[in-house]
Amino acid sequence: MDQLIAFLDMGGYAGFVWSSYGVTAVVLGGLFVSVWLGLRRDERTLARLQAALGGRRRGRAEQAEGADPSPAPHSASARPGPAGITPRTADNGEPA
């Protein structure tokens, strides 16, 4: 117990030593969390966009029945092909 108190007291410089480590922990920890949360948010936004845009392009390609072979590189199933060969999967949520 005395040892613990001596350790926490830091030879009378407790305020200076512990606040140094505290400031370091708060600044580095805070930045780490903010970068991590930002990364998660931006990657989720990207995934949502890719899903939405990929789905719409697929839908449009089907409506055009292959007449407008605009590239939609995010979706393998939307590769431009001869009319009728495009697989009519229902993964875009619309009835085929």
């Binding site: 930045l31 780490f32 970068v35 991590w36 930002g38 990364l39 931006d42 990657e43 936004t45 990207l46 966009l49 890719q50 845009l53």
Partner: peptide
Amino acid sequence: TTMLMGIRREIAAAKARTLRLAE
């Protein structure tokens, strides 16, 4: 670690920007 996470984030954000533009 933080720099790589930061770059990953920036790449995701850049891709999202181009997708929005394409939209």
